[in-house]
Simulated assay, not measured.
Amino acid sequence: MSAQKIHHVVPDASPPPPSSLYSHAVEAAGWLYVTGQLPSDPDAPEADLPSGIEAQAELCFKNLSRILAHTGYVYDDTVFVRIYLSEFDRDFAAFNTVYARYFRQDGLRLPSRTTIGVAKLGRGALVEIDLVGYKNR
């Protein structure tokens, strides 16, 4: 018997580009898989991306926060985060200052994490973030 899957399209999160076909998140058997979020403003998705890693990271987390709220998950439910940085050496430390605002620093609740340096991201972004959450329902 397969687990029921719930596909979440979140009206107040940044919409998928017309050429992309995906749900913001898919939930199955207590697991939540959130699609990678670029730093596009969910209230003005066609606007230019802000400059600087801190501003772009905040917009990624704004999108993630809206998706989590819609699905009933919270950051403490996150078990894995994947971060893509187009300027890894330059932006890693500054990104972490923003990241630390969203995940507890007590050492017991931090999710697993992979940070990857990439050659290019969509829309010329400096960062993209996806995550996996779990709730024992």
Rank of each mutant, 00 (worst) to 15 (best):
D48T: 10
T71V: 01
V79D: 03
K62R: 12
F61L: 01
T78P: 04
P42V: 10
E46T: 12
V81M: 04
L59D: 00
E46Q: 15
Y84M: 08
Y75F: 15
I67N: 02
I53Q: 02
G52S: 08
C60Y: 10
A25H: 01
T71C: 15
H70S: 14
G52D: 06
P45L: 03
S65V: 05
W31R: 08
L38G: 04
R66E: 08
L64P: 03
V34D: 06
P50L: 00
R82T: 13
V74L: 02
L38R: 12
V34Y: 00
Y22Q: 03
A28T: 08
N63D: 14
E54C: 07
S86M: 02
E54M: 06
Y33A: 15
R82I: 07
Y73K: 07
D41W: 08
I67W: 03
T78L: 12
D76N: 00
S51K: 15
S51G: 07
Y33I: 14
N63T: 15
G72I: 04
D41S: 09
R82W: 03
D89K: 11
A29N: 14
A44F: 13
I67S: 00
L49Y: 10
V74K: 07
L68N: 01
S23A: 14
N63M: 08
I83H: 09
V74G: 03
I83V: 15
F88S: 09
L38S: 05
E54A: 12
T35I: 08
D43L: 10
D48K: 12
V81N: 05
A55C: 03
L64T: 13
E27R: 04
S23E: 05
T71G: 03
E46F: 04
A25M: 05
Q37L: 07
F88N: 13
T71K: 04
R82E: 11
E87C: 09
S65M: 05
P42E: 02
L85M: 08
A29L: 07
L21G: 04
W31S: 13
L38H: 02
L49A: 10
G36E: 07
G30P: 01
E54D: 11
R66D: 09
F80G: 11
I83G: 02
G72P: 02
S19G: 04
Q37T: 15
D41Q: 00
A44N: 12
E27L: 06
I67K: 01
V74E: 05
A28I: 11
E58F: 04
V79A: 05
Y33V: 13
S65Q: 14
V26L: 02
A29M: 06
A55K: 06
I67G: 01
G52F: 14
E27V: 04
A69V: 08
S86P: 02
E46D: 11
E46V: 07
E58V: 13
A25I: 09
P45N: 06
R82P: 00
I67H: 01
S51Y: 15
L38W: 08
A57T: 15
E58P: 03
V34E: 02
A55M: 01
